[in-house]
Deep mutational scan, measured.
Amino acid sequence: WVPTKREEKYGVAFYNYDARGADELSLQIGDTVHILETYEGWYRGYTLRKKSKKGIFPASYIHLKE
């Protein structure tokens, strides 16, 4: 896992994603996520609506905010 280059990196989910394991994070369309790390097509972070739950999710489900 590699920390993100920018201190504040955010994105928005444009697909729903159902977590398949305890380390994964479920997403709903429109969720804003804070991205902490990246690795081979995956991000690690949390949604702003539930900051206490961190997990991994596919990068392809996220539109990055500039």
Score class of each variant (00 low, 15 high):
residue 1 W to N: 07
residue 1 W to R: 07
residue 1 W to C: 11
residue 1 W to M: 07
residue 1 W to T: 08
residue 1 W to F: 09
residue 1 W to G: 08
residue 2 V to P: 07
residue 2 V to C: 11
residue 2 V to A: 11
residue 2 V to T: 12
residue 3 P to G: 07
residue 3 P to R: 03
residue 3 P to K: 05
residue 4 T to K: 06
residue 4 T to S: 14
residue 4 T to M: 11
residue 4 T to E: 08
residue 4 T to F: 09
residue 4 T to Q: 09
residue 5 K to S: 14
residue 5 K to L: 11
residue 5 K to T: 13
residue 5 K to R: 14
residue 5 K to E: 11
residue 6 R to S: 12
residue 6 R to C: 14
residue 6 R to N: 12
residue 6 R to L: 11
residue 6 R to D: 13
residue 7 E to T: 13
residue 7 E to Q: 12
residue 7 E to C: 14
residue 7 E to F: 13
residue 7 E to N: 14
residue 7 E to I: 10
residue 8 E to L: 08
residue 8 E to R: 09
residue 8 E to T: 09
residue 9 K to Y: 08
residue 10 Y to M: 07
residue 10 Y to E: 05
residue 10 Y to K: 05
residue 10 Y to G: 02
residue 10 Y to Q: 05
residue 10 Y to T: 06
residue 10 Y to N: 02
residue 11 G to P: 00
residue 11 G to N: 01
residue 11 G to H: 03
residue 11 G to R: 02
residue 12 V to H: 04
residue 12 V to F: 06
residue 12 V to S: 03
residue 12 V to N: 01
residue 12 V to G: 01
residue 13 A to H: 01
residue 13 A to Y: 02
residue 13 A to L: 03
residue 14 F to R: 14
residue 14 F to L: 15
residue 14 F to M: 15
residue 14 F to K: 15
residue 14 F to I: 15
residue 14 F to Y: 12
residue 15 Y to I: 15
residue 15 Y to R: 15
residue 15 Y to K: 15
residue 15 Y to F: 12
residue 15 Y to W: 14
residue 16 N to A: 13
residue 16 N to C: 11
residue 16 N to R: 12
residue 17 Y to C: 06
residue 17 Y to E: 00
residue 17 Y to Q: 01
residue 17 Y to H: 02
residue 17 Y to I: 01
residue 17 Y to D: 01
residue 17 Y to M: 00
residue 18 D to N: 12
residue 18 D to V: 14
residue 18 D to Q: 14
residue 19 A to Q: 02
residue 19 A to W: 01
residue 19 A to D: 00
residue 19 A to K: 03
residue 19 A to I: 01
residue 19 A to N: 02
residue 19 A to Y: 00
residue 20 R to W: 05
residue 20 R to V: 11
residue 20 R to N: 10
residue 20 R to S: 07
residue 20 R to L: 09
residue 21 G to F: 07
residue 21 G to V: 05
residue 21 G to M: 08
residue 21 G to Y: 08
residue 21 G to R: 08
residue 21 G to S: 14
residue 22 A to S: 12
residue 22 A to K: 10
residue 22 A to Y: 08
residue 22 A to T: 10
residue 22 A to N: 11
residue 22 A to M: 08
residue 22 A to H: 11
residue 22 A to W: 08
residue 22 A to R: 09
residue 22 A to I: 11
residue 23 D to R: 05
residue 23 D to P: 04
residue 23 D to Y: 07
residue 23 D to E: 11
residue 23 D to T: 06
residue 23 D to L: 07
residue 23 D to F: 07
residue 23 D to N: 10
residue 24 E to D: 04
residue 24 E to A: 04
residue 24 E to C: 07
residue 24 E to F: 05
residue 24 E to Y: 06
residue 24 E to R: 02
residue 25 L to Q: 00
residue 25 L to G: 00
residue 25 L to Y: 03
residue 25 L to A: 01
residue 25 L to W: 05
residue 25 L to I: 14
residue 25 L to N: 01
residue 26 S to T: 11
residue 26 S to K: 03
residue 27 L to M: 01
residue 27 L to Y: 02
residue 27 L to H: 00
residue 27 L to E: 00
residue 27 L to P: 02
residue 27 L to C: 06
residue 27 L to I: 06
residue 27 L to A: 00
residue 28 Q to C: 12
residue 28 Q to T: 11
residue 28 Q to I: 12
residue 28 Q to S: 10
residue 28 Q to F: 08
residue 28 Q to V: 13
residue 28 Q to L: 11
residue 29 I to Y: 05
residue 29 I to D: 02
residue 29 I to N: 03
residue 30 G to D: 02
residue 30 G to F: 04
residue 30 G to I: 04
residue 30 G to T: 00
residue 31 D to G: 05
residue 32 T to P: 07
residue 32 T to R: 12
residue 32 T to D: 06
residue 33 V to Q: 00
residue 33 V to H: 00
residue 33 V to F: 02
residue 33 V to Y: 01
residue 33 V to D: 00
residue 33 V to P: 00
residue 34 H to L: 14
residue 34 H to K: 12
residue 34 H to Y: 15
residue 35 I to M: 09
residue 35 I to H: 00
residue 35 I to R: 01
residue 35 I to A: 01
residue 35 I to S: 00
residue 36 L to C: 14
residue 37 E to K: 02
residue 38 T to E: 14
residue 38 T to W: 11
residue 38 T to K: 15
residue 38 T to I: 13
residue 38 T to P: 00
residue 39 Y to P: 00
residue 39 Y to R: 14
residue 39 Y to C: 14
residue 39 Y to E: 02
residue 39 Y to H: 08
residue 39 Y to V: 07
residue 40 E to R: 10
residue 40 E to K: 12
residue 40 E to W: 08
residue 40 E to D: 14
residue 40 E to F: 07
residue 41 G to C: 08
residue 41 G to R: 05
residue 41 G to L: 06
residue 42 W to P: 01
residue 42 W to T: 00
residue 42 W to H: 01
residue 42 W to R: 00
residue 42 W to C: 06
residue 42 W to A: 01
residue 42 W to S: 00
residue 43 Y to N: 01
residue 43 Y to G: 01
residue 44 R to M: 12
residue 44 R to E: 04
residue 44 R to C: 14
residue 44 R to P: 00
residue 44 R to I: 07
residue 45 G to M: 04
residue 45 G to T: 01
residue 45 G to Q: 05
residue 45 G to E: 06
residue 45 G to S: 05
residue 46 Y to E: 03
residue 46 Y to G: 01
residue 46 Y to K: 02
residue 46 Y to T: 03
residue 46 Y to N: 05
residue 47 T to N: 15
residue 47 T to G: 01
residue 47 T to W: 02
residue 48 L to I: 11
residue 48 L to P: 03
residue 48 L to D: 09
residue 48 L to W: 08
residue 48 L to T: 10
residue 48 L to G: 06
residue 49 R to P: 12
residue 49 R to S: 14
residue 49 R to V: 09
residue 49 R to C: 14
residue 49 R to T: 13
residue 49 R to F: 11
residue 49 R to A: 13
residue 49 R to G: 14
residue 49 R to W: 11
residue 50 K to A: 15
residue 50 K to P: 15
residue 50 K to D: 15
residue 50 K to Q: 15
residue 50 K to R: 13
residue 50 K to T: 11
residue 50 K to W: 11
residue 51 K to L: 08
residue 51 K to Q: 11
residue 52 S to V: 07
residue 52 S to P: 06
residue 52 S to D: 15
residue 53 K to Y: 06
residue 53 K to H: 12
residue 53 K to N: 09
residue 53 K to I: 11
residue 54 K to I: 15
residue 54 K to N: 08
residue 54 K to G: 04
residue 54 K to F: 12
residue 54 K to T: 14
residue 54 K to R: 12
residue 55 G to R: 01
residue 55 G to V: 02
residue 55 G to I: 03
residue 56 I to K: 11
residue 56 I to P: 04
residue 56 I to W: 15
residue 56 I to E: 00
residue 56 I to G: 02
residue 56 I to Q: 04
residue 57 F to W: 03
residue 57 F to D: 02
residue 57 F to H: 02
residue 57 F to M: 04
residue 57 F to V: 01
residue 57 F to G: 02
residue 57 F to E: 00
residue 57 F to S: 00
residue 58 P to Y: 05
residue 58 P to G: 03
residue 58 P to Q: 03
residue 58 P to M: 04
residue 58 P to W: 05
residue 58 P to E: 00
residue 58 P to T: 02
residue 59 A to M: 09
residue 61 Y to P: 03
residue 61 Y to L: 12
residue 61 Y to I: 15
residue 61 Y to G: 06
residue 62 I to W: 03
residue 62 I to P: 00
residue 62 I to D: 03
residue 63 H to F: 10
residue 63 H to K: 14
residue 63 H to D: 08
residue 63 H to G: 07
residue 63 H to I: 14
residue 64 L to D: 02
residue 64 L to N: 04
residue 64 L to V: 09
residue 64 L to F: 09
residue 65 K to H: 12
residue 65 K to E: 11
residue 65 K to Q: 13
residue 65 K to L: 15
residue 65 K to I: 15
residue 65 K to N: 10
residue 65 K to A: 11
residue 65 K to D: 11
residue 66 E to N: 12
residue 66 E to L: 10
residue 66 E to I: 13
residue 66 E to S: 13
